[in-house]
Design a binder for these strands. Structure first.
Lengths: 201, 201
DNA sequence: CGAAACGTTGACCGTTTTCAATTACAGTGG
DNA sequence: CCACTGTAATTGAAAACGGTCAACGTTTCG
C-alpha cells in the first residue's frame, strides 16, 4: 500500500538488512527483545497478540509497502507475534540506528512524526470508510479518497480483488457494486482507470 | 476514546486555548492557513474533505479525548473542513508553539512520535477488527483487545451504545451478540465488567 | 418526579456473504 | 507455439446476518 514508510531512509543504507521469511515463519515473537522495525517489501506479515489465557487476537496484516512494529522503538519487548502469512521479503531497520538518527537530528524526528501523522490520518479515513454500510457508497467514497483531478479519477495499480480486502468487502460484492454504479451513471470504467461522475444537480 | 493526545502537554499551558464551537459551526475550513492542532474535550467534530467536483467525503469524526488535525503541523493549509456535529469544547494548541517545542527538544519530538506510533497501532487494530464480519466474533475480539488479567476481563467505562459505534455495529446488534455470547458461555457479564471465558479444550 | 439515555428483545427486510460456475488473460514450460 | 495453470473478473442463486423499526423496562440525573 501507500503507507508512509520513508523513515527507512533515516537509517544508513548499509545498516538495513533484507530479510526473507518463509510462510509460517516468525519475524519476532511476543516478549522478544525489540531489535528492529520493519517494512514489508513482498508478501504479508500477520501480527497477532496472545492473551494470558492462551487465546489470541489479530492486530494487523502488513502488506507490501507497509511498515510494522514502529512502536517497538519505544518498547523493550514486542507485544505481539509477527508471522509471515506467505513467503515474504522484509527490510529490517535496527532499532538502535533509527533511534539514534531520531535523537541526533530534530529534523529527522520531525520527519518521522510527519510520516506517522500522515498514517494516522489515512487510517482514520479508512476506518471512517468502514462506517458506510452500503457497498456502492463505500466504494464511491474510497474512490473519492483516492481520486485526483476534475472529474475525479483513479488509476488502478492493483487488482480489485486486493482493493476489496482493503475496503472490507468480498470481491464479488465489489464487482456487483461497480456494475451497479456504472449502470447508474455514477462512475465510468476503462482500462485501469475509474472516473467518478458528478450527478447533475 | 483513549487516543494518545498527550502532545497537548508539550505546549505551555498558558498558550492553550479552550474553544467552544456550536453545533454546525466550523473549527476551520479546507484551504484555511493552519494555525493550530486540536483536542476534543466534549462533543464531536466531523472532518470532511471537499473534492474539485463539489462532492465531499467524510474523513473522520473526532470524539471526546481525540486529537485532530495533527497533520496540520506539517502543512500550510488544512486539507479538510472541521465542523462540530454537536456543541463542542476543544483545546487548541497553536501550531507554532507545538512545532517550536518539537524542534527545540529531541525528547519532545520523540515523545510526540511515540504517541503517534501508538495511535497507528491502535487504529490498525481497530481496522483489523472490522474485517471480522460476525458480530459475536467481532465483539469478542474487541473485548480481547481491551482485556487484561486472567481470565481476561474488561471494565466498561462507557455505554455499549457508544462502544457499538466504535466497533461498527448497531447497539441492537451488540446486545443480541452479547446475549448470544453469554448464552454460549463465552463471556460472563456483571455490573460494568465483562469476563472473557476460555472455552475448555 | 419526569425526561433522557441506556439496555433489551422481537420481527421483518434487504444486502452481503457464500458457494458455484464461467470467461478472460498472463505467464510457463514442453 | 500451444497446452496448461493460476489469477482476475464476472455473474447467478440461496442463505445468513445485521440493519431497521418498534416496543418496553430500567437507570440516571437534573
Amino acid at each position: 500500500m501507500r503507507s508512509a514508510t520513508g523513515w527507512i531512509g533515516l537509517v544508513a543504507p548499509d545498516r538495513l538488512v533484507t530479510r526473507r521469511v518463509a510462510a509460517g515463519e516468525a519475524v519476532f515473537r511476543q516478549g522478544d527483545a525489540t531489535v528492529a522495525v520493519y517494512r514489508v517489501e513482498q508478501g504479508r506479515v500477520r501480527l497477532v497478540r496472545h492473551l494470558e489465557d492462551g487465546s489470541s487476537v489479530a492486530l494487523h496484516v502488513a502488506r507490501a509497502g507497509d511498515g510494522f512494529a514502529e512502536a517497538a522503538l519505544f518498547s523493550d519487548v514486542y507485544h505481539c507475534d509477527a508471522v509471515a502469512e506467505v513467503d515474504a521479503v522484509l527490510t529490517q531497520a535496527p532499532k538502535a540506528d533509527l533511534l539514534a538518527a531520531l535523537e541526533a537530528d530534530p529534523r529527522a524526528s520531525l520527519a518521522f512524526a510527519r510520516m506517522l501523522a500522515t498514517q494516522v490520518r489515512d487510517l482514520r479515513a479508512r476506518l471512517e470508510l468502514r462506517n458506510i454500510r452500503a457497498a456502492p457508497e463505500r466504494i464511491l467514497a474510497w474512490l473519492k479518497l483516492q481520486a485526483s483531478g476534475t472529474p475525479p479519477a483513479v488509476r488502478l495499480d492493483r487488482p480489485w480483488t486486493e482493493i476489496a480486502a482493503e475496503i472490507g468487502l468480498t470481491h464479488e460484492a465489489i464487482y456487483r457494486a461497480l456494475a451497479a454504479l456504472e449502470r447508474d451513471g455514477r462512475i465510468e470504467r476503462a482500462a485501469g482507470v475509474v472516473r467518478v461522475l458528478t450527478p447533475r444537480g
